[in-house]
Every structure is written in structure tokens, then in C-alpha cells.
Amino acid sequence: MSTVSDPEPHTLAGVYALDALDDDLERRRFEDHLSRCADCAEEVRGLTETAARLGRAATVSPPPGLRDRVMAEIGQVRQSPPGVAPDRAARAAGRSRWWPRLATGFAAVGVAAALAMGALTLRAQERVAEIETVNREIAAVLAAPDARTVTGTAEQGVSGTVVVSRAQRRMVFASSGLAALPPERTYQLWQIRPGRIRSAGLVRPDDRGQVPPVVVGMVGGGQVGVTVEPAGGSEQPTTEPLLLLKLPGAS
């Protein structure tokens, strides 16, 4: 912890506005500082408001059942009187109140059973929607202003291409020359950074050894690797990568 005697606590204004402090203690300490620094409080207000604008840009249509559940729940919730501490107490209370949701869950199971008959067609529709979404996502990465491409070849004619958009924190991966695998094996894609290897999903080549473009999330740089793993994939790589591509670094 380096914040105990931070010489310039106000530099945390951005971190605070983004809710990126590490814990409640750190947060309280900064709020204590805010109460003694009017300029800082003013700045934090503006930055918090700015962060909220980022939030609004993420707007999507809420799920259809949400309104009814919320309206039903507020019928049983006592409203708080005006006070200084905004949502802290409510959050603490909210954490232990998981049981009503469990009841909702059981109700949902019943509904799910009733809907099971219609589920097949629904699934097909979802599948189509999913494919469309993935295509849009691939296109978004390829068209990103900061898109950068890395291509590499390895032994036995294996080659791969990665298009990275760091702004979108996504990359598109495609590959060719991968041999067909028995059903108990799979290819797995990894993002490899120093001290941290993360699965980026399973990839399956078609009959001609081509992996059609897939889009996966990524944070930071490092390398992208492909390994052979037991079907279902592994937590961490268990074999040597067949292909390694170095991601473009942050500038």
C-alpha cells in the first residue's frame, strides 16, 4: 500500500471518480481528504459526472421482465430519509438480501419449463442473432482506427493473423494450416503476458485446417498463442504453443 502517506492525495481524483480505488478503506481515506479540500471536491464532482456520461453511452434496452420485478420489489421496500451518506448503507444491506432473488429464481424455473416447447425455435433465432452480432464485432475491430495487424508463420505450414484494436480491447484471430484433431483434443487460444496467461477461448479449424475469424477480448499487450489441449480446454496451457504472435504494445 503506497497511499498511507501519499504526498498528493488529490491526484486520486480520477481514480476515485472511476470507482477504481482498491478498497473501502482507501475510499474512505480519500473522502476524508475531500471533506477538507473544496477544490478537490469540486473537481471530483466534475469527473464523476463525466464518468456517468461514459456510463450512459453503454445504454441498452432493459430486459422485458425487469420493470415488473422492480415495481413489485419497491412495494416492500422502506424508503430512506434524506441523509448525507448516499447509498452506502443500502449497498451493505443489499449484499445480504439474496434470498428474495432465490425465490424469484424458483419462479423463473417454472416459467422456463412452461416455455420449453417454444425454446427450440427460439434457440435457432438466437443463433442467427449471435452470428450477426459476431460478424458486426469482427467488422468493428477490423474497421477500428487503431487496428493493427500481426501475421506470423510457424512450423508445418501453420500461420496466423491477429488484428488488434486496443481501443476496443478486442482482437480478431484467424489461422490456417492447423491439422485436424481427434475429438478428445482441441486448439486453445491464449493471451500471454508476463506472469499472466489467460484463455482466449477454444478454436476449431474446418476440414481444410482454416480457423475462421473469431473475435475475443484482450487487455494489455503480450503475445497470442495457440496450444493443443484436452477437449473442453485447460485453465492454463499444458503443451507448447504451435504458434506465437507478438501483440503490438501500448504507445
Binding site: A51, A52, G55, Q79
Partner: peptide, 28 residues
């Protein structure tokens, strides 16, 4: 539900209502 519960705690002098709601949402 928290917005319903804590509506009385919103103070317009401290920011926009949407900003207040989004702050609650982000923290949660």
C-alpha cells in the same frame, strides 16, 4: 430499487440526477 429507496438523498447541488443514478449503478 436503491434509487427508489434513497431518492430523498439525491441533492441537485451535488450533480445531475442521471449522474447520481449512474454512480450508484457503477459502484454496485
Amino acid at each position: 430499487v436503491d434509487v427508489w429507496r434513497s431518492a430523498a438523498r439525491y441533492q441537485s447541488s451535488r450533480g445531475t440526477a442521471m449522474g447520481w443514478v449512474m454512480t450508484i449503478a457503477h459502484r454496485r
